[in-house]
Amino acid sequence: MRARPRRRGPLPGFGLSIGVTLAYLGLMVMIPLSTLVLGSTRLGLAEFWSAVSAPRALASYRLSIGAALLAALVNLGMGLLVAWVLERYRFPGRRLIDGLVDLPFALPTAVAGIALTTIYSSGGVIGRFLEPAGIKVAYTPLGVVVALTFVGLPFVVRTVQPVLRDLPAELEEAAASLGASRLQIVRRVLIPELLPAALTGFVLAFARGLGEYGSVIFIAGNMPMRSEITPLLIMIKLEQYDTGGATAIALVFLLASFAMLFALNRLAARREAHAVGA
């Protein structure tokens, strides 16, 4: 495996597989996406700009980005903790819980949405206790964060777990034999080792949260300027017969996700190259 295949490599099937891939991507992904670009060019620059920079649109970006960021941060911290607990400790039910972590990938978002709303609205299992304490979750921006936390929960756990599993025990032992305390080991040795994987999970969770719709609309209050996420604004623009505005906002949103994903893939590629070189 040391010699990376030069140019394309000797395996057959390049033409066929890339042909199928490009044809399918072209038909299913590129043509539909190009209509989005074309649709927004019909608008004219001034109109395009006023659609994507309207205060209501700006407020929705703020909420979508802010809530996705916050949820991804929660998942970064809790994901590290969960991965740690699942990999390092033994307790009854560990395997079951490990399996359950992927639930948000498998559960339809609309189902997640109505379940979370039922739990956090004022009569719900948790809402009942939070309400008297003055904390409102359902129908507030906080509700958006809760839904996005659910949706993005598996990412960090699943990116960190394999790294943690493959971490050589010598690393910690060496640090310990040099007299480092447990806390120092965690801070100086473990966290730096886990951070790249955790960040990958963080970005994935963030990207997923940005676009999420199904689970959020049930639990967000959907108030303009306050609890209206960008995908909902796109929907509402459409329903107001403003296809141009919807297209423009959708395009901006799409470019942002694409840039983020591309950067992430480059980062992963660089790390892969690093690993091979080492």
Binding site: V29, L36, G211, G214, P231, I234, M235, A250, L254, L261
Partner: peptide
Amino acid sequence: PFSVSPVV
């Protein structure tokens, strides 16, 4: 497609 909002 994974990063495109379902609505879009």
